[in-house]
Nucleic acid binder design. Structure first.
Lengths: 148, 148
DNA sequence: TATTGTTATACTCTATAACTATA
DNA sequence: TATAGTTATAGAGTATAACAATA
């Protein structure tokens, strides 16, 4: 059924946003309980992961691009994470408009505490797919992400 | 860089939820302006598409599964769509607990009005990918969605 | 008792605009 | 004037629990 209602629109099952969302939901259903146990939201986890990823401090703008969060959302979230001692906000040397963000030792410990269970769940997903499926999936997703 | 911070967690770029989100964002960036022009949110569009897809009425529960929305969110949203004359809520014959939902003629006209532009944008995405990439992507996404 | 849906509540995120400080 | 970030505000969605009606 390629045009079920005769409305000139593709089948709902053939909607790329829906297919991406469904896959993401299936994955996140396995990770959300873990994040909840440690008191972090999905978006906060994105921020902590992005900061833990490298040792170089990041500006808020760079972090917003990387985590797909908007400036105002990030701004408030970072204040919360700062209060919890998970991140550090310092004025950028050389440009006082910028804020540099680094993850604290406490923040790193939180990431490290979640990591083993996270990797275990990740592998259980990988094990249910054909060999090489994830590599191919990443490749295609990167292509789609690069369209604009 | 497979374990950049030495925290036992995979690189942020190798996070499946992030890769799925990035791809979805790239796609949605092209569709959101169109939906906004017609005064529907992303989630409302999901509901209208799901209802337009078949002629058989759907219960709220079935619709929630299909659109990946929660009951309470759907409940309020359907009240709004009903007020706008886009959907119809009727008690299910035989089981008064259930509500059956159908898209109205007005709703179908809205879907049909958005469809051509939507399909055009969809094809422009398809054109930027390798031939067959979308078919393969759907196949892999379906596998991931089926893990639970 | 279990199921279907609604209402209540609190929280978070999205989105845009206005504003401050700095460049 | 442009840029980086914050604050303000409105709106929408997420998530859980409590509730009513029906099965």
């Amino acid at each position: 059924m390629s045009d079920p209602g005769g409305l000139g629109i593709r089948d709902f099952e053939r909607s790329l946003p829906m297919a991406l969302l469904r896959a993401r939901e299936a994955v996140m259903r396995r990770f959300r309980p873990l994040l909840a146990e440690h008191g972090v939201t999905e978006q906060q986890w994105r921020v902590l992961r992005a900061l833990a990823d490298s040792d170089s401090p990041k500006t808020i703008g760079a972090l917003a691009d990387r985590t797909l969060l908007l400036g105002p959302s990030l701004s408030r979230m970072l204040a919360t994470l700062d209060e919890r001692g998970l991140v550090l906000r310092t004025p950028a040397p050389g440009d006082a408009r910028r804020t540099e963000l680094t993850i604290t030792a406490h923040g790193r410990r939180l990431v490290a505490a979640i990591a083993p269970d996270s990797e275990r769940r990740y592998r259980s997903i990988e094990d249910r797919l054909e060999p090489g499926a994830l590599d191919e999936l990443y490749r295609l997703l990167d292509h789609v992400a690069a369209i604009d």
